[in-house]
Design a binder for these strands. Structure first.
Lengths: 209, 209
DNA sequence: ACAGTTTTCGAACGGTGTTGGAAAAGCGTT
DNA sequence: AACGCTTTTCCAACACCGTTCGAAAACTGT
């Protein structure tokens, strides 16, 4: 079938979902389209451009699932609820692909239309919440980069936690008593994420009056 | 001279500072040591391990400059000042190398001792500030990932801002009025960073009482 | 059917991380 | 000093990567 920018991005997303960010290669994308690697370069300037297009697609999907989540919200939902809905929608969209956070992180400046859509809606909810205009931009920036940063740490955690010997553990406890201590409750990632968004919202609420 | 893990990391940091994260290769690191690429693998299991070691070194340097910054603080400094000092020290340490944020972002889980040192000190200042113990871990996590995320966006911004035609600009203004509007003041990156840290601290202060 | 354009091929280039066997260097013991 | 043994380095090779370029193919309008 004919080769198109869209079909290339489609194949890229498919390969991406299978092998992850690090192992995605032009040749694999071409193979999935029964084409040769060089042919891709007629439609796409470079691998970086392809990655940018894929990042845009992830953002667009996140935007769509975000609108669904917002629509499912009860009418008396607070602005915190609306922000949390968008944040979790974005997080889940990124998490669907192995290394998806790296894809967004690497993409330069978040200047694709998909990323801008996310930003725009976030700005609107913050503005509707009554946040002073001067703080909205930074607040939205913080939210977006927090979500990607969170998923980044989430996806980079090794599948099998490193084995620590007893003596090493003791040394760690002595060197970093707070980290090893009871300060950090053993929460699931979902709970940690929800709590972090709540904490951020609390900050926004603080400057709200 | 003899080849050592430390010397390899040194050379890696030197090459890293020159060519950045993307173009760092084992062969260049070996060249700087007048050695051959294969020889590195006797001391280092893989390139990923080398990158992890380098990330640890960046964290350690950030920790040191952080202690200096804290020492230079007046004795009546608030806990917000102390957090900002650590945050800016970390940011500047990362910014010293092109792609330094990617180095930290890629490094799995931030489980090196350097990263743990940063985390530990952040936890202590938050705890001393009076933040409830249950929130300290998440607050510190937010701060760390926010700094790396901020520098990530900072370093990924294309050197020459993309040229936008007049009609494209108009369309963007219509599609994203809030982003293009006066909401986002034209602040320098330094100001944006300081303000974002202040906003986060305001959130911590909100849950403080 | 022909000319012109758009698209694809296929080979090649220079580069990468990594491996494994041969060679060298260091070192303790006799 | 000479030997064996371990630690360290070399070197060639492998498989793969992103990218380029001229030629071949496919498609288009006339």
């Amino acid at each position: 079938m004919k080769l198109t920018k869209d079909r290339i991005v489609d194949a890229g997303m498919a390969v991406f979902a299978e092998v992850g960010y690090q192992n995605l290669s032009m040749r694999q994308v071409a193979d999935r389209l029964d084409a040769h690697a060089g042919s891709l370069y007629y439609h796409v300037r470079s691998k970086d451009e392809l990655l940018a297009l894929m990042a845009d697609r992830v953002c667009r999907r996140a935007h769509d699932t975000g609108t669904e989540a917002l629509a499912a919200l009860p009418p008396d939902a607070t602005w915190q609820d609306r922000i949390e809905a968008q944040a979790t929608a974005l997080r889940l969209s990124i998490k669907q692909h192995a290394g998806g956070a790296q894809l967004l992180a690497e993409s330069p400046g978040m200047l694709s239309t998909g990323a801008l859509s996310l930003m725009e809606r976030l700005l609107r909810t913050l503005l509707d919440a009554g946040l002073p205009a001067g703080h909205c931009g930074i607040a939205a920036d913080i939210l977006l980069s927090h979500v990607t940063g969170f998923v980044l740490q989430e996806q980079n955690q090794p599948a099998t936690p490193p084995t620590v010997t007893a003596e090493l553990y003791a040394e760690l406890c002595e060197q970093f008593p707070l980290i090893m201590g009871p300060l950090i409750p053993r929460l699931s990632q979902d709970e940690k994420f929800a709590q972090s968004v709540h904490l951020l919202c609390a900050g926004f609420a603080a400057v709200l009056e």
